[in-house]
Write a protein that binds this DNA or RNA. Structure first.
Length: 458
DNA sequence: TGAAATGTTGGGGCG
DNA sequence: ACGCCCCAACATTTC
């Protein structure tokens, strides 16, 4: 019986996995994960712990089926060559990954080895979405129209028929790392969460997703990032709900969620078509903005000590959990870029270090969008007012109080802008601005004018 | 997937 | 009754 390697990268799942399916069709499957020093050298301890936990879960699921995960460390092509000769495997199957590093890595592997790449990191291959003139989309709305018009490839149900495994080879033990508390890794958890979301918050997603103080989002991004959840399955479920839902408000919710999943595909496609966005603004005319070199302000932002409660709450949520509410991501990104006038790439790097769902395509897309320098970006003059955003999306301040406990005693009327509390009140609450909680690092109105001037001169 | 500045309207206080 | 002012409320424009 022939042996075929399933090279696992960002597809830590048994369900709806074309790489596993193709390998299984041809014989016994040898599941392999390679710890690539190039990727591990980039410090992101929480995401790495999430990955290792996911590998442990996957290994446990494989063992229930009579297989096991083989873990190796080193340059992938070299490691695969060794594995092919040790196992006598005839081919390697993997899901195509669209980041620049992954493409270079896979091109080398494909030149030297029998590597077969399959779609599955996205629903539609980036190159299959092109305008009539053959050029890639750079605006979301037409991209999404085209995406929806393409025939939807239905997700594979269940495990590959006749799934059998190679008895396994020696490998490294899985590194021990405590998984982040709020996000238990693995596909079982991912599927459970998706079901809970679809039966719960999804119906109200169109509105609820914006609320910082409610669990109105799916919080599935870490699972999608590592392919613990098949994006094709997620989109299929969203579509099915939207089509079968009689309640128009609920249908809107499912459609909005589907749209968010399509944003994910959009940014995968943007990175595939324009790899340089990882280094510079997509919009050439906005590459010369005079960003401030302000290490103290950057440090305050990173630490959640800007003096703007909603910004600080969000930054602390990120450090504590490895995740941040999407509305909060927009607020803190707008604050870094448009209030502090700090280069969006500093924020992009900080997010990549801390986010469990940190993915070059989605993260870069989000930052360029907020900074107003990317594809289909927010116009440069769209500047969030952190106080108004806070009042609107955290009306009682409960999100703030959860992550900025030193403000817990501040009354609702002052929770969004505590520096406006009279001195007497600050003293009686023992919340003195400037000592118990930072004074604002910038005045928003002044910062806004500064940024408008900086962008306008470009 | 904004917010601020500016313009318009209309009710009410007042002489 | 009338003109005038103020200013909320809303709409439009601008950044």
């Amino acid at each position: 019986m022939s042996v075929n390697i399933w090279w696992i990268r960002r597809d830590l799942r048994l369900h709806d996995n074309p790489a596993l399916l193709r390998a299984a069709e041809q014989g016994a499957v040898l599941p392999v994960f390679i710890l690539d020093p190039h990727l591990l050298d980039r410090p992101a301890p929480m995401r790495q712990a999430f990955l290792f936990g996911g590998l442990r879960q996957l290994d446990a699921n494989l063992r229930n089926l009579g297989g096991r995960l083989v873990l190796r460390r080193g340059e992938p092509t070299e490691q695969l060559r060794l594995l092919l000769s040790e196992s006598g495997a005839q081919s390697v199957h993997a899901l195509e990954d669209y980041s620049p590093y992954a493409r270079t890595r896979d091109e080398r592997a494909a030149r030297e080895l029998p590597l077969h790449l399959h779609g599955g990191v996205t629903v539609h291959h980036p190159a299959s979405l092109r305008k009539a003139d053959g050029r890639p989309y750079t605006v979301f709305t037409p991209f999404s129209k085209n995406w929806k018009a393409l025939p939807f490839p239905s997700a594979a149900a269940g495990l590959p028929p006749g799934l059998a495994f190679h008895p396994g080879l020696s490998g490294e033990a899985l590194p021990d790392a405590a998984a982040p508390a709020g996000f238990p890794p693995g596909e079982t958890e991912a599927l459970r969460r998706m079901d809970a979301f679809l039966d719960g918050a999804a119906a109200d997603y169109a509105e609820g997703r914006n609320r910082l103080d409610l669990d109105g989002t799916s919080a599935l991004s870490p699972y999608l990032r590592f392919g613990m959840l098949s994006p094709r399955l997620a989109c299929q479920r969203a579509l099915a709900r939207a089509q079968s839902s009689g309640d128009s408000a609920a249908r809107k919710g499912y459609e909005t969620w589907l749209n968010e999943l399509i944003w994910r595909e959009f940014y995968q496609a943007i990175l595939y078509e324009f790899p340089r966005v990882l280094r510079e603004a997509f919009n050439p005319s906005l590459r010369q903005i005079h960003w401030r070199d302000a290490p103290a302000d950057l440090a305050a932002w990173q630490a959640g000590r800007t003096g703007y409660p909603v910004v600080d709450a969000a930054m602390r949520q990120l450090s504590a959990t490895g995740w941040m509410h999407n509305r909060a991501r927009m607020i803190v990104a707008s604050f870094l870029v448009k209030d502090l006038l700090i280069d969006w790439r500093a924020g992009e790097a900080w997010f990549m270090r801390h986010l469990l769902d940190g993915d070059p395509a989605a993260n870069n897309g989000g930052w360029q969008w907020t900074a107003g320098v990317g594809t289909d970006a927010a116009p440069y003059f769209r500047i969030f007012n952190p106080v108004l955003q806070s009042q609107k999306f955290d009306p009682q301040g409960s999100y703030i109080r959860r992550w900025v406990p030193e403000l817990a005693r501040v009354p609702d009327a002052h929770i969004h802008a505590p520096w406006q509390m009279p001195g007497m009140l600050q003293a009686s609450l023992a919340v003195r601005i400037g000592s118990d909680y930072p004074a604002p690092v910038v005045d928003h109105a002044l910062a806004r004018e500064r940024t408008l001037a900086a962008f306008k001169s470009k």
